[in-house]
Amino acid sequence: GERPPLGAPIPEREWLRFRLAVVAAIEQFTAVLGDWFLAADGLDRAHADEVMLDLLRWHGAEEVEHRSVAFDMYQHCGGTGTPRYARRVAGMAVTAPVMLYLWVWGTAYLMRHDPQLTGSRLRYSYAEHNRAVHKGLLPAWRELGAAIPRYLRRSYHPSQEGSLSRALEYLRRSQASRAAS
């Protein structure tokens, strides 16, 4: 939000930098997911709806394409140096558990509202998640988790994440992109 939680005495500019650090950390995960969607052959093998799959991959390509915008803005606004690095770490420390929660909550929500699922499959379970990973329908937890130490390297830049050429190639051939043009 615009103000620190519970009226914490954080200077306005510092609060802005922290929020940028959080957004940069979120974009780390969206870039990883976007690149995963572009390469996920399991979604093709599952005969996912072509229009929805194109939309999902288009969004994934877009996430890879702009993966460094928030990070670069964070760096520009004072995100370099040792105390600034600590803020970047804090941004990821806040973001990672929230993203995990949203992933599990979102998966459970979609499962509950999928008309093709019935019975016990309506609840999120680690076993169901692992079955989907094995089929290539979801990224493995280790793939998502591995994004954290990469992001925390001092020398890290989001341009190292994902394949920009794969994203741009997908955008060139995407039905949704061509229809929008």
Rank of each mutant, 00 (worst) to 15 (best):
G1F: 08
E2C: 04
L6S: 13
A8D: 00
A8G: 00
E12Q: 00
R13T: 02
R13F: 13
W15R: 06
R17M: 00
R19E: 04
R19K: 15
A21W: 10
A21P: 02
V22S: 01
V23D: 02
F29K: 01
F29M: 08
T30Q: 07
T30K: 10
L33S: 04
D35Y: 08
A39V: 01
A40Y: 01
A40F: 00
L43F: 15
D44W: 15
A48S: 10
A48M: 12
A48L: 13
M52W: 09
L56W: 07
H59A: 12
V64N: 05
S68K: 12
F71P: 00
F71T: 03
D72K: 11
D72W: 14
Y74M: 07
Y74V: 02
Q75C: 14
H76M: 10
G78W: 11
G79T: 13
T82S: 09
R84P: 04
Y85G: 02
R88N: 02
G91A: 11
V94W: 14
T95L: 05
A96D: 06
V98E: 02
M99V: 14
L100E: 12
Y101T: 07
V104C: 02
W105Q: 03
W105I: 02
W105L: 03
Y109F: 11
R112E: 12
R112F: 11
R112K: 13
H113D: 04
P115K: 10
P115M: 05
L117P: 00
L122P: 01
L122I: 03
R123S: 07
Y124G: 02
Y126S: 03
A127H: 09
E128D: 15
H129L: 08
R131W: 08
R131H: 05
R131D: 08
L138R: 00
L138H: 00
A140Q: 01
A140P: 06
W141Q: 01
R142M: 01
R142N: 03
E143V: 01
E143G: 02
L144M: 15
G145P: 00
A146F: 13
A147F: 14
A147L: 12
I148Y: 12
R150T: 04
R150V: 03
Y151P: 02
R153Y: 08
R154H: 04
S155F: 10
Y156V: 04
Y156P: 02
Q160W: 13
E161D: 14
S163P: 07
S165C: 06
A167K: 09
L168R: 15
L168G: 04
Y170L: 03
S174A: 12
S174Q: 07
Q175A: 15
A176H: 06
A176Y: 05
R178Q: 14
R178W: 03
A179S: 00
A180N: 01
A180L: 04
S181V: 07
